[in-house]
Design a binder for these strands. Structure first.
Lengths: 196, 196
DNA sequence: CGCACCTATTCAACGAATTGACTACAAGGT
DNA sequence: ACCTTGTAGTCAATTCGTTGAATAGGTGCG
């Protein structure tokens, strides 16, 4: 039935902990937060929801709307919740990184260093944008509480912890990129001096 | 011929900038450094090398060994080097994250919080090990020079920049994990006090 | 008035990735 | 003699991921 690469399944079940959602809703939720640690396209989500429904891990109902296409809303079933809980106890497999920018950085010395410089600068813009969106999500999660109170009293801190991770990841991205640009610029300056 | 997801191709070509290597060698190189930004299994590498050779981007020669199976050694061809250089100029696609640990952290509140705590602690051990190995690679890359001298004078800084990224990524991992454990432990302590 | 974008999903096709099993031989230890 | 680990790969099956396109009405903008 399922391969070993089944985290998408649990990423979806985990997202449904927030409440009932359509495939379209999930696509948006993934876009703003889940994609930070598990990216998925809408097609993947629709397919996965189909399977989860077939396996009884989610319950589906069709909601007719006027002025809009029908939508199917999904909720976590008791079996789904149990499956998700059991999943948390199993060893996670190590992270598999996939960053095309770094493939380009690796080859920078035989390639177009200026273009790569540009890519790094764009990555910084992207990271700043992501951080701003994360900060909004954070405010929303806290719901008026201080971080300390929230983390002590809330009965649902998982999403906050993963959000913290997303934020510090992007901050780290920025730090690295700043340093890399500094290094590239210093070298570019040296080159122009040494080649009259 | 090729899809749009072609970074593995360039990760391999980039790794061959270091010199001639067999599929087996590449698997080891990926394991210690490249996998930090582009993970690949040996099977993927063998398949990719086959294709690269067919396309004339690498040159292959069979080396007969006694007491060992034959091996095929690959070198970057002029065409391969050009292709790699052209690749660096193109827009990189955004990073796609895949971290199963964070899927578990997200669902921690309905799952086995102690087990997840354990997974985070293991991730810290892993990160510390990775950092130690990176530090050895760093010393090797510097070849006796100070970082400043190396970054100013070397004609190949790409690998150093990606290594920096790998190191700061793991350091960030550690910082996040420490904070997460702190939070989980504080909550666990509160629970035992409040449930007599 | 028209055009582009948003909601909401489905389908088809293809390419990429993952897993497990299998082949061989060598070196080193118990 | 046996077992494990390391070298150096290949093959087949299946799952996963990606892209493009089709459907179909609604909303906002100039």
């Amino acid at each position: 039935m399922y391969g070993v690469q089944m985290s998408l399944k649990y990423a979806v079940l985990g997202a449904l902990l927030e409440g009932e959602a359509s495939g379209y809703d999930l696509a948006k939720i993934f876009d703003v937060s889940v994609s930070n640690f598990w990216a998925a396209t809408p097609q993947q989500l629709y397919r996965e929801l189909e399977r989860l429904a077939a396996d009884g891990l989610v319950e589906a109902r069709v909601v007719a709307q006027d002025r809009r296409p029908n939508k199917r809303m999904f909720t976590l079933s008791a079996a789904g919740r149990q499956d998700l809980a059991a999943f948390t106890a199993k060893e996670p497999r190590p992270t598999a990184a996939r960053d095309e920018l770094l493939v380009k950085v690796q080859a920078l010395d035989v390639g177009d260093a200026d273009a790569v410089r540009g890519h790094i600068a764009e990555r910084m813009d992207w990271a700043r944008g992501k951080l701003a969106r994360y900060e909004r999500v954070r405010i929303h999660l806290l719901g008026g509480l201080s971080e300390e109170d929230f983390l002590r009293d809330s009965d649902r801190i998982g999403p906050y912890l993963t959000l913290m991770r997303g934020m510090s990841f992007e901050e780290e991205n920025l730090r690295w990129a700043r340093r890399a640009l500094e290094i590239l610029d210093r070298r570019a300056a040296n080159r122009t001096v040494q080649l009259p």
